[in-house]
Design a protein around this nucleic acid. Structure first.
Lengths: 139, 139
DNA sequence: AATTTAAATTAGAATAGTTCTTGATCCAAT
DNA sequence: ATTGGATCAAGAACTATTCTAATTTAAATT
């Protein structure tokens, strides 16, 4: 089944991102993530965009998220084996998981610091992706 | 069903680790991990220790691994949402995932470096656990 | 040494996030 | 308008892990 909804113009979301055609569903997913700092799960995205697209399916949300990740529009973030979360912050950063509240906060690097300065990497290593996760409490 | 196997003395594995009684199953799991640098999954541990304990169950392997993690005898390591892997290296270190071969290498910090020197942590943050994952290629 | 009690183990069922399948629908280009 | 490839929807399938219930083991006590 399809939505048969009009395809309104969303001036804040372009027609295309890094070569990915922005369908109505992808727009809603992306637009919601842009306004969220809470690193929502696929299911949370699903629940939220159903308000705008009542017939959207969870599989489509997964498809949209995966497409956006593949085209470097968003990042997928994992904590242990909890449900994956999605993050529109493309700058290199880590994630602090506050165990008291369950909330997740982006953590920036101090200016001028690169991971290679810190880690004893094997020679001839090409790093394509870095993930830094911190767990603890805000007191 | 039970093994009815004798409980041989393994001089390289103590009777107790950090207050955790080392049953035969826990000994086999722990001993195998100590000799492995490949960060095996629960299933890989299971397949391997079946040679010594033919009647061991996968649930028991999960129980043993969890008990060892809880008592700080080993570490649980996650890459995205792939099956969890287990690591006997207790020193603070990261993991480099070589995408070409699929192998995982421990990565040490450069001496004298602490994460707090590198990250812009919010004030009043108590860090209980850090996980650093790198993905890339060895050329 | 027998009894009691708690912990550990096992086998299989249950769970949950994610992926897959299939058919329908949309969209761009002819 | 038609065609062909991409996208979507609904639900089934998959899989790593956890849970349940029953059994067995080990430790503590008599």
């Amino acid at each position: 089944m399809t939505t048969h909804l009009p395809h309104p113009h969303h001036p804040d979301v372009p027609e295309e991102i890094n070569g990915l055609r922005m369908t109505r569903q992808r727009q809603e997913v992306y637009r919601f993530l842009l306004g969220e700092r809470s690193h929502p799960t696929a299911n949370e995205v699903f629940m939220r965009i159903k308000e705008a697209l009542p017939h959207v399916s969870l599989a489509t949300v997964y498809n949209c998220l995966e497409a956006l990740v593949q085209h470097n529009a968003i990042r997928k973030v994992n904590f242990d084996r909890e449900p994956s979360r999605y993050c529109p912050n493309l700058a290199e950063h880590g994630h602090f998981h506050d165990e008291t509240t369950g909330t997740i906060h982006d953590v920036k690097f101090k200016p001028g610091i690169s991971l290679a300065d810190v880690l004893d990497l094997p020679p001839n290593t090409v790093i394509k992706d870095v993930e830094i996760t911190l767990r603890g409490q805000l007191t």
